[in-house]
Write a protein that binds this DNA or RNA. Structure first.
Length: 272
DNA sequence: GTTGACACCTGGACGC
DNA sequence: TGCGTCCAGGTGTCAA
């Protein structure tokens, strides 16, 4: 599933392919993807040129002349640049036609992805970006910030997945970060020490930087593009490694459920 | 206000 | 081979 490193990979790939292309028409094959009024969405995109592609958390932001197209890939969303004459693939839900007879197609097997269209000056007002928390790479992502946010007795895993606290982390990277920080996923946040918080910050940065460098994680359900494969899955320490030896102590990795999410940990290194 | 459960979705894996 | 069931999981919604 696309998390921050995967979205960053998609952003970099798309920037090479669609920058400066002008939209002439938009076809929407599955309405629920679009969270803005459909007619407004289609009409306002015509004659808009893609000036830049940015990212905020897991959101992809297409900067146009007058608007931001805000796209969330959720579980399996992906973009593919095709010629207008190419056959429409299964699971294609939105098609952006360009003036040069190419098309940017949005494909999403599970149909979970979302798209918003907002005027440039209002991009961070209201849904979906207003409430997003800091990213691990932001200057303000400090022990003091985490202290202010880590209130109550919620499990640390739930809090790390909360996009209003930390933007960009998903299940895979949270499993990896908690392993590196030697923290049990169910440990209540109000029991964490300052050292724990420093370890979380360090592990978040190390994990995400490495994942971005390697092009993200390609698993069964997700690739960033038709021909782009991430290599971070080869570097995973615990995620999906049930019964395999812990890379630190050789204890078999176990899998538990935390709030319904598949959670991998070393029971020796990550004690509750 | 906070927290957890559930729905949204489809395809792959697995058991029978 | 075919069928049924479970699982994967980000986020919005709703109930407790």
């Amino acid at each position: 599933m696309p998390e921050l490193p995967e979205v960053e990979t998609v952003r970099n790939t798309l920037k090479r392919k669609v920058l400066n292309k002008t939209i002439t028409r938009v076809d929407i094959l599955y309405d629920k993807i679009i969270k803005t009024d459909l007619a407004t969405f289609k009409n306002n995109l015509v004659n808009q040129t893609i000036i830049d592609i940015e990212r905020k958390g897991k959101y992809l932001l297409f900067k146009l002349n007058d608007y931001y197209l805000i796209s969330h890939l959720r579980m399996e969303g992906k973009y593919s640049l095709k010629k207008a004459t190419d056959a429409i693939e299964k699971h294609t839900h939105v098609i952006f036609h360009f003036a040069d007879d190419t098309e940017l197609r949005y494909l999403d097997v599970r149909k979970f992805g979302t798209m918003h269209l907002k005027p440039i000056e209002k991009v961070y007002m209201g849904e979906p970006l207003e409430k997003l928390g800091l990213e691990p790479f932001d200057e303000g992502f400090t022990v003091a910030y985490l202290k202010s946010k880590f209130t109550g007795n919620r499990p640390i895993k739930n809090v790390l997945l909360d996009q209003e606290i930390i933007a960009g982390l998903g299940n895979i990277y949270v499993n990896e970060i908690l392993f590196l920080a030697k923290l049990h996923p169910e440990k209540p946040v109000n029991q964490l020490t300052e050292q724990n918080l420093m370890d979380i910050i360090e592990a978040s940065k190390v994990t995400l930087e490495k994942a971005i460098k390697l092009g993200g994680t390609t698993i069964r359900s997700y690739t960033s593009d038709d021909n782009v494969t991430g290599r971070f899955q080869n570097e995973l320490l615990v995620h999906g490694k049930v019964n395999e030896p812990c890379p630190v102590c050789q204890t078999p990795i176990i899998k538990i459920k935390v709030s319904g999410r598949g959670t991998y940990l070393c029971p020796h290194c990550q004690k509750l």
